[in-house]
Amino acid sequence: MIVAHNAKRMYRFDLMQRLVARLEHEEAVIGGIGNTNFDLWSAGHRAQNFYMLGSMGLAVPIALGVALAQPERKVFAVEGDGSLLMQLGCLATVATLAPKNLAILVMDNGVYQITGGQETPAARADYAAIARGCGLAGAAWAADEADFERLVGQCLATDGPHFIAVKLDDQPPVTQTERDPPQIRDRFMRGMGAKRSKLLG
């Protein structure tokens, strides 16, 4: 088992591109506040992407709601470390409900990067261990890019709930998401097949 301090520090945008490249079945991806959804956007907009705004910590709960509503669709929550720290209880909820189609990806740079890079109070914490403690038995750190690819493959091929944590370097996001919340919601609903409209998406 990889422990947190042995995990290679990787580039968020590269990992996001690797994740998106593996999605072939209209999997839903919920990007958490700020940089996490910015790099999801930069990796190429998909109709099944949801880009969250200010509700810091809710990427996992939103993804859980999607996963419960559509058990046949794989759903990824991509969340920042500071954000997850704010809503750790959701890991226990996920473990208890145990949706087979949900995967959680935590982007751990150790800081609140978007607000200026201040350190989080989790310097001595291990997110995969926390997830295992909540009941997500398979929670793991990705050792490097190849290991990340392997773990994503596991999420896609096997029943979850899955939990992957990655250590990040300090590179900033590539660009910013276009912020138009009702439009983001509308497109996501079409991507989920939950809305049909003759208006152009």
Partner: peptide
């Protein structure tokens, strides 16, 4: 807060 996120996600996916 978690529950608000769950209900929001579920509604966007049809529940």
């Amino acid at each position: 807060e978690e529950a608000v996120g769950i209900v929001a996600g579920a509604w966007m996916a049809g529940t």
